[in-house]
C-alpha cells in the first residue's frame, strides 16, 4: 500500500488566524416627530460618530421611518437579520443595544448545555483531573 501523504485542508476557525466580525451592517431607523424616538435622535446626533469610528468594518445606514418606533437592525454574514426596538430608550441604553447587535453571531438564541461546541465532537469528552481514577500520594 503506497504511502499517502496526510491530507491537510485549511479549516477556517474564527479567532484563531484572524477574527471576522459576524455583523455586516447595522441599520438605524427613527422618526422625527414621535417621542419614542427622542433617545434615538440624541444617539444619532451625539453617539453615532464615535460608535462608527470604533467599528469601521460595519456598514451603518441611518434612515427615517415616520410614525414608527425606532429600530436597530443588524445583518450578519450567515444571512440572518436581528432587529431590536429601542423605543423610549435613552442614548446610553441604545449604545448597549448597538454593541449587543455588533457582538452577536447572527445565530438563533439557543440554550447552551455543553461547555464545548464542535462540528466533530469527541466521544470521550474533555479531560478532567477531578474525575476518573484518583491517585493518592
Amino acid at each position: 500500500m503506497p504511502l499517502q501523504a496526510i491530507r491537510q485542508v485549511a479549516k477556517p476557525q474564527n479567532g484563531v488566524g484572524a477574527f471576522i466580525l459576524q455583523c455586516k451592517s447595522l441599520h438605524f431607523t427613527y422618526c422625527d416627530w414621535a417621542g419614542s424616538s427622542k433617545g434615538m435622535n440624541s444617539f444619532l446626533t451625539h453617539y453615532l460618530p464615535r460608535f462608527a469610528q470604533q467599528n469601521p468594518q460595519i456598514e451603518i445606514t441611518v434612515s427615517p421611518k415616520p410614525r414608527k418606533h425606532p429600530v436597530i437592525k443588524g445583518n450578519y454574514i450567515n444571512g440572518r437579520e436581528k432587529a431590536v426596538c429601542v423605543a423610549n430608550m435613552d442614548p446610553k441604553e441604545i449604545v448597549k443595544k448597538a454593541v449587543l447587535l455588533r457582538d452577536a453571531s447572527g445565530e438563533k438564541l439557543k440554550k447552551v448545555t455543553k461547555p464545548v461546541k464542535s462540528l466533530n465532537e469527541s466521544v470521550r469528552g474533555i479531560w478532567d483531573p477531578f474525575h476518573g481514577h484518583q491517585w493518592k500520594i
Partner: peptide, 26 residues
Amino acid sequence: PKLAERLSVSAAIAALPNVTVKDRRI
C-alpha cells in the same frame, strides 16, 4: 431642520466612510 438634514451637514458624520444617511425611508 429634520434630523437627516442635520446629520448630512455634520462634519463628524461626513468624515466617516462607513456611515450613510438617507433623507427618506428605505
